[in-house]
Amino acid sequence: MSFINYSSKEINCKIVYYGPGLCGKTANLQFIYKKTAPDKKGKLISLATETERTLFFDFLPLALGDIKGFKVRFHLYTVPGQVFYAASRKLILKGCDGIIFVADSQVERAEANIESLDDLAFNLEEHGFDLNTMPFTLQYNKRDLPNVVPSDEMDQMLNNRGVPWFDCVAVDGTGVFETLKDSARQVILELKKNY
């Protein structure tokens, strides 16, 4: 859910990066953090284990600029991917305005992607959201690796709804901002529909 404050002239939106373990969600946030001017970002908070696996969530607040005099803030969250963190994953989806699904393009992760997408649809439903209608963007990550599934096959596997998708290499930043920008666009247009 977004938070529109007419008093301080702010619009706050929540975007969640979802996907199987090790697909590159945290890498997306790290790149965005690295490339955003200091005055436009807050701290990147990672609640991680000692081996840097996301334990609860990563959080990055962005204040990119103004629209019609309102300061637009995006709060980016990632979820922990491992199967046994199901409970935390569900908590983080609460009140989200948009979803970015990060798929791992490697052949051997095909099944993990599908399972994670099913898990996402299920968890969203529990919160009363519908993945078929809410702002949703797909990212096919790790395109730099040799053993990847071709993008159009990724699309066939994951993109029933035909939403925008982006080839990406999160570690060098290819496609990272394109993905975020698409999600931001969908989220704002959804708000426009309602207000």
Binding site: I4, Y6, I11, L64, G65, I67, K68, G69, F70, V72, F177, L180, K181, A184, R185, I188, L189, L191, K192, Y195
Partner: peptide, 20 residues
């Protein structure tokens, strides 16, 4: 219905582009 002074009234793709 819509709020009179909604910041979303006349929002365009350009406005969204400008954020990035």
């Amino acid at each position: 219905g819509k709020l009179d002074d909604s910041p979303f009234n006349e929002i365009s793709d350009d406005d969204i582009d400008s954020l990035f």
